[in-house]
Write a protein that binds this DNA or RNA. Structure first.
Length: 264
DNA sequence: ACCCCTGTTCGGCG
DNA sequence: CCGCCGAACAGGGG
């Protein structure tokens, strides 16, 4: 499920526990979600610490605890987070539970394509230091995007939009939404894009990210009805603009929907 | 039973 | 070494 706007929503679910101490940590260290993570140290250091704050970069999240302790979370395909009552019943896929006196902070991930990391130290962990600017900031500008597109001329533009070191936080539905707004075929080779198409993709990327953060990211509501996302998973999906039936195919290894009338 | 999946990583290939 | 592609990961849902 999670792309950048959903990630933002899930991150905020744990704000309920900010300022409060973690009194217990429940996890199963051998689960795949903890691959290459020292869960013994995580438990020893986080129990007794309090949750201070959190931030998100693309699809990644970082939670800061007192005593120089950090937990990084990636939600993969099926990760979800919530604040549950302190006495809630832990279910099969509730892989990480941070117990507080008043509530429990829960990470659920049935498929475990997501990942939990731990870091102890006064500085941010190395794996947090991002290479790509956040799309919603000024650092994500035309020159950055142009350089990135130049580097991937041979790939279909849909695949390039899914690369996290360029389009941080964009996932499958946002990529289709962007290309539909920019009127560009998902399968088009990146080097074949005109200057106008590059500009349109840049503008649509900013627009879709902003809109998604204002709806899904804020209160988990849906983007406006005029967006492609409402049509893309339907068998008989139609273009919100002209009601043209959408086409579907696998592009860059992912299910892709587009409007044959709008996108060239 | 069979096929699908809003993500990332790795091995193979050119 | 670089970039691109498909498979693998694991489980639930249609």
């Amino acid at each position: 499920m999670p792309e950048l706007a959903e990630v933002e929503w899930f991150r905020k679910q744990w704000d309920a526990g900010r300022g409060d101490k973690i009194v217990d940590v429940r996890l199963h260290s051998r689960k795949r979600i903890f691959r290459r993570t020292n869960t013994r140290e995580l438990r020893e250091r986080v129990v007794g610490a309090s949750l201070e704050n959190s931030s998100a970069r693309g699809k990644r999240m970082l939670f800061k605890f007192s005593g120089d302790n950090w937990i990084g979370i990636h939600l993969g395909m099926t990760g979800k987070m919530r604040a549950a009552p302190a006495d809630f019943r832990q279910a099969k896929h509730d892989h990480l539970v941070l117990c507080q006196t008043k509530r429990s902070l829960v990470l659920t991930d049935s498929r475990q394509f997501g990942r939990v990391r731990f870091h102890h130290g006064s500085d941010e962990p190395d794996w947090w230091k991002g290479t790509a600017p956040e799309i919603a900031t000024r650092d994500f500008d035309r020159s950055f995007v142009d350089r990135f597109l130049d580097r991937h001329g041979q790939a279909p533009i849909k695949g390039v939009l899914l690369m996290q070191n360029g389009f941080s936080g964009i996932g499958n539905w946002m990529a289709d939404e962007i290309l539909w707004r920019a009127k560009v075929l998902p399968s088009k080779r990146t080097r074949k894009l005109s200057a106008g198409e590059r500009a349109a993709i840049f503008r649509a990327t900013k627009f879709v990210v902003k809109g998604a953060l204002e709806t899904t990211g804020r209160d988990f509501s849906d983007p406006p009805k005029s967006w492609l996302i409402h049509q893309k998973w339907k068998r008989q999906g139609i273009c919100p603009k002209h009601r043209t039936p959408l086409k579907h195919a696998t592009v860059a290894g992912r299910t892709t929907a587009w409007c044959p009338r709008c996108q060239k």
